[in-house]
Design a protein around this nucleic acid. Structure first.
Lengths: 233, 233
DNA sequence: TTATATTTGTGCTTTATAACACGGTTTTAT
DNA sequence: ATAAAACCGTGTTATAAAGCACAAATATAA
């Protein structure tokens, strides 16, 4: 599982938020518990119901956190970009995973055993506050998301997802193409709608010249209008 | 705002989870920052957009946390029972409230300034872990809720709300009447549906002998069947 | 390559749920 | 006590979104 021995500098650059608050002694301890794992495109990272063992930090690639709902429908809860931490919530809640995670594209992930994290938290209140802050932010986002997904109409939800992808992963060099190529199905699962409706609404947006579509490549043309559509629902 | 000087014993009984991990010195510090506030039925406790200042703990009464959505529709995010802590998330996330809170019925609430809590957390990792655990549990619930509210049908959502109210507030002495009397509108806002649909679906449940209704009094008759309806969506 | 599976796109139908209207009832306020 | 407001119940209508069927296009595998 360990790819190679990493230098402390490399580790520090991989997980700055976690590393920064630690003392030298704690850093040495963490370096000994630091492992790296690679995942292929579409590979499952963890499943609903499994017992959480490690804190994970995404070093490269893109990841989706999702949940299987009623009747085989899947809902994407959030997507991760580089340097984001995940998989620790369930451990802290003393339960199993209620979500699953899989790789949108090839990923490198850093794993740290949760007992090691617990030990560090007990000795380092800065680190504890990092998790408190992160969980608080995510809980706020989740509450917002609940209302957005339930109350907005299809156009509003899709517009929101497109903007969300832009804000998360950014744009390519042309300053308009989304830096992530999702299937229509994933786009639907992110926006709480059926695949046909994602396809249809996406075409409508293209017809209205808010975006252009070329297979899975999506260019944002009129961001202001999209924000308006997202806002009014 | 302070009702009277409370003894340490009284405080300890009010907020056991917070009190228990503290040292004697920390307890004395907390006792000096402990105030109590009463709220009338339907009174607002805090509003969306306000800046969080205090950790709150519900000492008596029942509270709803909700969010105004698009088009004046309101969504109840969660409901609180005695001894539950709230209003701290936004402070930790370093933002303003994204939800509002109001009293279902007359409430007594304990307030502790967040800076005092921060000071205690920095010195006491047990307390930090209490918040980490609580936030982790709430985030898991919120993620579950997102999927339930978006994917289940009306009957499933209402059944779930009724069971949720039972699990939260329990039953009266007759072992079947829900210990909380909500308006049809609140029931609708909890279940993500319109008031008319809450009324209609509630009557249907009564016709099917799953519940009986007498104004706002709801008796659970066939809990197994309700659980089944909630589960299949 | 050819074959097979997966994804995308369109049109049509069905359905769940919201929206509206209105009368009766209960609660609240003056 | 009386008026006003809020709440409850029911019927009807409108509509957003799901479901389904079936090509066409693309990707994947043999």
């Amino acid at each position: 599982m360990v790819k190679k021995e990493l230098s402390e500098t490399e580790i520090a650059e991989s997980i700055p938020d976690l590393w920064q608050p630690l003392t030298q002694e704690q850093r040495e301890f963490l370096a000994q518990n630091f492992t790296i794992q690679k995942y292929k495109k579409n590979e499952t990272i963890y499943c609903e119901g499994e017992t959480p063992m490690h804190l994970m930090c995404l070093l490269s690639g893109k990841v989706k956190i999702y949940k299987e709902g009623v009747g085989g429908r899947s809902q994407i809860i959030r997507v991760l970009k580089t340097k984001e931490y995940f998989a620790y919530r369930a451990f802290f809640a003393e339960g199993n995973f209620v979500t699953a995670a899989s790789a949108f594209e090839p990923c490198t992930i850093c794993l740290i055993p949760m007992p090691a994290i617990m030990k560090l938290i007990k000795d380092n209140s800065e680190l504890a506050l990092f998790f408190i802050r992160q969980l608080s932010i995510d809980l706020g986002i989740s509450d917002e998301r609940t209302v957005n997904l339930t109350q907005k109409h299809i156009r509003g939800r899709l517009a929101e997802s497109l903007l969300f992808l832009k804000d998360t992963y950014g744009l390519e060099e042309d300053e308009s193409t989304l830096s992530i190529y999702l299937s229509r199905e994933d786009l639907a699962n992110l926006s709480n709608m059926t695949t046909s409706n994602a396809i249809r609404t996406l075409s409508n947006f293209a017809t209205e010249r808010l975006i252009t579509i070329d297979g899975r490549k999506i260019k944002i043309i009129d961001e202001d209008k999209l924000r308006k559509i997202s806002k009014i629902g």
